[in-house]
Design a protein around this nucleic acid. Sequence first.
DNA 1: GTGTGTGAAAAACTTCACAGCT
DNA 2: AGCTGTGAAGTTTTTCACACAC
Lengths: 224, 224
Amino acid sequence: MPPSPTPRPRPERTDPTPPRAVVGRMSHYLRTLQAELADGRATINSSRLGRLLGFSDSQVRRDFRAFGLAGRPGVGYECADLVDRIRKAMGIGRSWPVALVGCGNLGQALLGYGGFAREGFEIRAAFDRSPRLVGRDIRGIRVEDFGHFAESVRRNRIRLALLAVPAAEAEQTALEIARAGVSGILNFAPVRLNLPAAVSVTHVDLAIELEQLAFAVVRHQKRG
Amino acid sequence: MPPSPTPRPRPERTDPTPPRAVVGRMSHYLRTLQAELADGRATINSSRLGRLLGFSDSQVRRDFRAFGLAGRPGVGYECADLVDRIRKAMGIGRSWPVALVGCGNLGQALLGYGGFAREGFEIRAAFDRSPRLVGRDIRGIRVEDFGHFAESVRRNRIRLALLAVPAAEAEQTALEIARAGVSGILNFAPVRLNLPAAVSVTHVDLAIELEQLAFAVVRHQKRG
DNA sequence: GTGTGTGAAAAACTTCACAGCT
DNA sequence: AGCTGTGAAGTTTTTCACACAC
C-alpha cells in the first residue's frame, strides 16, 4: 500500500463552457418552446417543459442556468425571450447559408426537407459531379458543377455543407470542401472522415440509428 | 447538522444491463472493426481503436468488458471475434425485415441507401397513401397502399419501420404502425411522437444535427 | 516490451429538497 | 400558493495508473 503523494493539480473550476450534455438538449428545448409559442402560450414552467421532453424539472432549470437563462419564481420562463436567448447562445437564428454537395436521391430529399428553414439554415447552392444532374433545376435550385464549389462558397459566404455523395467519394470530396474554407460538414455517407481540425464534422449514420433502435427493441422485450 | 447515519441501501451491483453510454458506442466499434477487417487486420488494440474513434484506450477496454468482451494481453482484440460477439450482444446481425412508410423524396432516398444492408436490415416492403405512388416500382420494391400495412407486417414478420411521411401525418401514421404490431420506429418527421410504451422510437432530426454542428463551428472559432 | 484488466480517483451529470422570491 | 435557484447528495461515466498476462 504505497501512500501515494497525490500532487493535487487543483482543477480551479471557472469553466464558462456549457457542459456537452446541456448543449445536446438545447436544440430540443428550442423546438418545444417554438411549438408552445405557436400554441399561444407565452410562458412555460420547468416541469411542463420537462414533461414534454422526458426530462426532470430540476434538469431543465439547471440546463437553463448553465446557459445563463433565468426564469421568474412563481411564474416560469418566457417562451419568446427564451427562444431568442437560446438562439443567440447557440449562434444560430441568423441566416446560415448552406451548400449541398451530392444531388442524388438523398441530396434531392434534403433539398425538399422543410425542417432546415426553421432555424435559418438555407440551402443556397447545390453541387454534383455528374453531367446528368448539373444544370438541372431541383426545387428551385440549379445544380452546379462541383468544380465551381470554392468560388460559390466565397460568393455566398457558405460556412456549412451537407455531404450526400456515395461513400467511395466522400473522403476526397470532403477534403475539397474543407479546402474551400467551409467550417462545418454534415456527413451522410457511411464513412468516417479524416479532416483537418479546422473543420467540424457531424456524422449522420442511419445504419447506426437503426442498430440502436433494434437493440432498444430487443431489450424492451426481454425486460419489461 | 447531524452527520447522517447513511443507511446504506446496498446497491448490490450485479447489473447485467450494459450502461447506456456504452451501448451508444458499440455500433461505432462495430463499424470500425469491420473496416479494419476489410483492410486485412486480424487484431486491434484498444489504443488504436480508440484513436480511430476519438475515445481513450481505457474507455475502449471498459466498454468491452461491460459487454463481456475479452482481449489478450500483449496482443489486443481479435476483430472477427469481436464483430460476432458485438452483433450477438446487440441482437443484430440476423436479418431484420424493415418496412418503409412514406415513399416521397426521403423515402426513395432511404430505399437507395446502401448502408442498411451491412447489419442485416432489409427493406422488405414500402407503403404510401398517394395513388400516384402506389403500384410503382422503386429500386425493386413495389409500393403498396398503406391500407395493407398490417397484413404485410404479419406476412413479412416486420418489427421495424422507417417513418418518412410529412410532419402533419406523422403522429397518426405512427399510431397505425404501432397498432399493426411493429416494435420499433425510426422517425424522420420533425415531430415528437406520443406512442404506447410497447413501441420504441428513435428520432432522426436533421435540423437538430445542423444546429449542433453550427454551435460546434461557432465555439471552435471562438476558442481554438 | 506490449497491451489488457481493473481497483481507485476524478469528473460529469442528475436528482433531491428546500430556502426564498412573486 | 406556485415556481425558481441552488447547495448537497447521489449516480453514472471517464480517466488514472499499475499489476499482471502474453
